[in-house]
Design a protein around this nucleic acid. Structure first.
Lengths: 123, 123
DNA sequence: GCTTGACTTGGAGTGCACTCGAAGGTGCAC
DNA sequence: GTGCACCTTCGAGTGCACTCCAAGTCAAGC
C-alpha cells in the first residue's frame, strides 16, 4: 500500500481551501482525522481530496457548516444512514434550484437596467 | 402632492428587509434619507420601495454592501455617472453568470450523489 | 392623564466562517 | 551544527452584514 499522500500545502492548492481552513475543517469534525507522516505532518490521500471536493460543492451551494457537519457525522455512522443523507441532499437540492431560479430572475432585472443605461448613453 | 408614504413596518413587509436593516441601510448611505411624517417617523414612498427592491436584487446576487454603497453614491451624483454605473452592473452581471454556471455544475454533482443513494437503498 | 405601542437615536452585540498569531518541533542544505 | 522552510497546536482575532438594546418621544384610546 504505497499511499504516500500529499502535504497540507499541496492539498490546499488542489482543494482551493487554505491550510488554515483545512485544519479548521478537521478540528470541527467536517473532515475525518487525516493521516500523518513520520514527522507528524498531515498526509492527504486521494479519498481525503475527493471528500474535500464534495464538501466545497456543498459549501459553495450555500449549505451552512453546521449542516455539513451533520452530514459528515452520518457518513461516519455508516451505510445505514444512507436514506437520511439522501433526504438531506434532496432538501438541499431544492434550495439550490430555488436559488438558481432567483438568480436568473435577478439577472433579467440587471440586464434591463444595463440596457437602460445604454439607452441613456446613446441618447 | 398627496404622497403620504408608508411606515417602516409596512416597508419592512413590502421589502422583506427588517426595520432594523432599513435603518441600517439608510445610516450607511445605501438608501437616501427617507422622508418623515409629522411625528418624525420615517415615511417610505413608492420610489423608496423601488430602490429597496433593486438593492435587494443586487444583494441577493452577492454584491457586497460596500459595492452597493459605491453604486448608490454614483446614483446620488446624477446622470453623468450613468456610464460608470453601467460598467459596475455589467461586471456584476458577469459574476452572476459565473455563479449560476457554478451552481448548475454543483447541482449536477448533487443529483448524481442522490441517484447513488437511491441505488444503495434499492439494492 | 395615563397606558400602550410604534417609532426614534447611537452604540454595542451577534453569528458565521474563517484567519491569524505565538510558540514550538522536524528534517534537509550548507 | 545552524539556518531555513514547513509543519504542529491552541486560542484569539477579523470581516461582514446585520441585529439588538437602552433610553427616550409621540399619538391615540380609555
Amino acid at each position: 500500500m504505497g499511499m504516500t499522500g500529499i502535504t497540507i500545502q499541496e492539498a490546499s492548492r488542489t482543494s482551493g481551501l487554505s491550510a488554515h481552513t483545512l485544519r479548521y475543517y478537521e478540528r470541527i469534525g467536517l473532515v475525518p482525522e487525516v493521516g500523518r507522516d513520520a514527522a507528524g505532518h498531515r498526509s492527504y490521500t486521494g479519498a481525503d481530496l475527493a471528500w474535500l471536493e464534495f464538501l466545497t460543492k456543498l459549501r459553495r451551494t450555500g449549505m451552512p457548516i453546521a449542516d455539513m457537519c451533520r452530514y459528515a457525522e452520518l457518513v461516519r455512522r455508516g451505510p445505514e444512514t444512507a436514506a437520511e443523507r439522501r433526504r438531506i441532499l434532496q432538501a438541499h437540492r431544492e434550495r439550490v434550484l430555488e436559488r438558481i431560479a432567483q438568480l436568473n430572475g435577478d439577472l433579467a432585472v440587471l440586464d434591463r437596467k444595463i440596457d437602460m443605461y445604454y439607452g441613456m448613453e446613446s441618447s
